[in-house]
Computed example of a mutant assay.
Amino acid sequence: MPESVSAVLGPRYRAVAVPVDGGDLHVGVWEPEDAAATGAATPTAVLTHGITASHVSWAALARALPGVRLVAPDLRGRGRSRDLPAPYGMPRHADDVAAALDHLGVRDAVAVGHSMGAFVALVLADRHPHLVRSLHLVDGGMPLLPPPGVAPQDVAAAVLGPAADRLRMTFPSRTAYREFWSDHPALGPYRDEVVTAYVDYDLVGEEPELSPATRPAALEEDIRDLVDGASVQASLQGVPARPVTWYVAPRGLMDEVPPLYPDAARERWTRELPTLRLVAVDDVNHYTVVLGAHGVRQLLPHLEADLR
């Protein structure tokens, strides 16, 4: 692991290999600073990342929750779980996450998901309800609505096109990959040591043939679930059964307006799911809502209330 990544993950962190169908799921675990004192009562959150991300995207939140056990897998087809085979899809990811919690002896967790990871968390709560106490869906989880002029089958490509394009590129060095991201409008202007670690972790292979650590096939299979996946639609029926907080960012994947969830989407889902608690996060984009300290500070009061 690059030194920049290890430094950001910190001394509480350890990596765990969890046996799942097809191989080992790579899971990052942050233990509480005073785990011996809290013992079995240690609060636990399970964190699921976005569609082309990794568990390193939670490093800023881990710093802000020193008294909490955090369990954060690299989802199948991403990061150091990249070589786990298909099929992918939200039910497959949810079952992998449940296997990780069982492996670690976690019986009760607050589930926090970002972007696609919010859909994973939603399906996890539906398929494994005994494991999930409450849900925190960060700029994800609610099916994406077609922008004006875009057919439903083209929504995912329209929203995630730039992310998908990157996966088919190669880079001669880590420096070149950092430079690629420095030009990205949603991350370049907000680059700090957490963003740098996130970027440095997201490479596999050897120089001069480095490539992003998400398999294009995983993205292609997963992407439809974000629009009209049957497992997500079924899981929405369970929203009233437990506390669900939905955080929305004011800017999108390219730091643009309108965001991933514009006003029409917010109005639709809060109308259809009246128990859904909407939290509008201020002055962040789709990435910095979890990668940046400003976004994390706004998530904390709601997370800490549930973790208590």
Rank of each mutant, 00 (worst) to 15 (best):
Y13S: 10
A186K: 00
R251G: 10
D165Q: 02
G161W: 12
D255Y: 02
W58T: 13
T42W: 09
P146E: 08
D306S: 14
V5K: 00
T214L: 08
Y13L: 09
W181C: 05
A157C: 06
S57C: 15
L9Q: 06
P262Q: 10
L236K: 06
L276M: 05
A163S: 11
R308A: 15
R297D: 00
R251C: 10
N285R: 07
V199A: 02
P162S: 09
L307T: 11
R224G: 14
Q237C: 09
A59K: 05
A41P: 03
V112D: 00
D139S: 08
H26N: 05
H128P: 05
A158P: 03
G39Y: 03
A60S: 13
R69I: 12
M90Y: 11
V97N: 01
D83I: 01
V110A: 00
D306Q: 09
T196C: 01
E256I: 14
A158Q: 04
L278M: 06
L144R: 03
V284A: 02
V8W: 05
L210Q: 02
R242V: 11
A111N: 07
H302R: 07
L131V: 05
R69A: 14
R242N: 10
M116G: 01
E220Y: 09
V281A: 00
L135N: 06
A280D: 12
D95T: 03
R277C: 07
T270H: 01
L299M: 10
A72S: 14
S6F: 11
P66K: 04
D282W: 00
P85K: 05
L75F: 06
Y201M: 03
L300C: 02
L65C: 08
R63N: 12
